[in-house]
């Protein structure tokens, strides 16, 4: 499975910093995961290189979230990685102690959840909470943090960074909360960003903003992203590689364009057929705009 490069990435999304072949930052090697002794994820193997985006797609209960929780040590008391290895660079995450893994989570492995708003404390400002998370991993003054946060927000297209920092989470819209969740993860500049359904709770306009922000993060920082979603549109817009899961098993894995345009597995075919597609007249100006934006012509 080794040897995937970021060359595809350069072609698709303009990540141009690394023209040379990069090493994998994350590698799942025949991973099985069980909950209460029942195997829920079987034989999962994939690799993610620097600056690469892997989309994991499947229906509810297919085990896609479990796969990324295993890397972050978030399986809980009843969950266990029973076979295989999860490699982050040269570290086997399944063998690390909780203490060592906790130090990696944040500066090396970041995570964005479906509902970022719910992961913030409602009675403290965004700034207090983000500052606390950064300070837990490295010494930083409040001033320095503010500068860094404002710079990050500017670079990731989040306007009004100052106002956002001073706000309480409930004062922000769902989309803004989600973007703050992304900023919270990115402040520690992780090498790998796990995103669990980051756009599922958002409407189409905000969803597009979040997708663009994540692509910008990859372009700016070269972050590898593992994106779990059931939204094929988001996968199509972002992923370089895609892994399709059903009932805890890998159905299909490969280049996103190839899998989405000519699926081999019966389940992938059914999944793609079920996606409602916007039917646009080829003579319509909307068609031209969407073609230019890259939404049409890739499926």
């Amino acid at each position: 499975m080794r040897g995937c490069t970021c060359r595809q990435t350069v072609n698709r999304c303009g990540y141009s910093e690394g023209d040379e072949i990069m090493d994998d930052v994350l590698r799942y090697d025949h991973v099985d995961i069980s909950y209460n002794g029942r195997k829920v994820v079987k034989e999962i193997s994939f690799t993610v290189s620097e600056g690469e985006i892997l989309g994991i797609v499947g229906e509810s209960g297919s085990g896609k979230s479990t796969v990324i929780k295993a890397a972050m040590g978030l399986l809980g008391q009843n969950g266990l990685c029973t076979r295989g290895d999860i490699w982050y660079r040269d570290k086997n995450l399944t063998e690390l102690s909780a203490e060592v893994l906790r130090k990696l989570c944040g500066p090396e492995l970041g995570m964005i959840f479906q509902n970022s708003g719910a992961s913030f404390c409602p009675v403290r400002t965004v700034e207090d909470q983000l500052y606390e998370s950064v300070k837990a991993h490295r010494p930083v003054s409040r001033e320095e943090f503010r500068r860094e946060a404002a710079e990050l927000m500017r670079r990731t297209g989040l306007e009004e960074g100052g106002r956002v920092l001073k706000s309480y989470p409930f004062e922000l819209s769902g989309g803004m909360q989600q973007r703050v969740g992304i900023a919270a993860a990115m402040l520690l500049k992780p090498a790998v960003l796990f995103a669990d359904e980051p756009t599922s709770a958002l409407d189409t306009i905000t969803q597009k903003q979040v997708v663009e922000e994540m692509l910008l993060i990859r372009k700016t920082f070269g972050t590898a992203i593992v994106l779990v979603t059931h939204n094929i549109g988001v996968i199509r817009a972002m992923a370089d590689k895609v892994l399709v899961m059903k009932d805890g098993i890998m159905c299909e894995y490969g280049d996103a364009r190839q899998v989405l345009s000519s699926p081999q597995h019966q389940y992938t075919k059914a999944l793609l057929e079920a996606v409602p597609k916007l039917k646009i007249n080829t003579k319509s100006p909307v068609h031209l705009e969407r073609s230019l934006a890259g939404h049409i012509g890739f499926l």
């Binding site: 189409t204 306009i205 916007l278 934006a293």
Partner: peptide
Amino acid sequence: IINDPKDEYTKRLIAGVL
């Protein structure tokens, strides 16, 4: 509406579909 949206907001809504 999808092929020929008149309103700016509708245009944005359609452009947002990935």
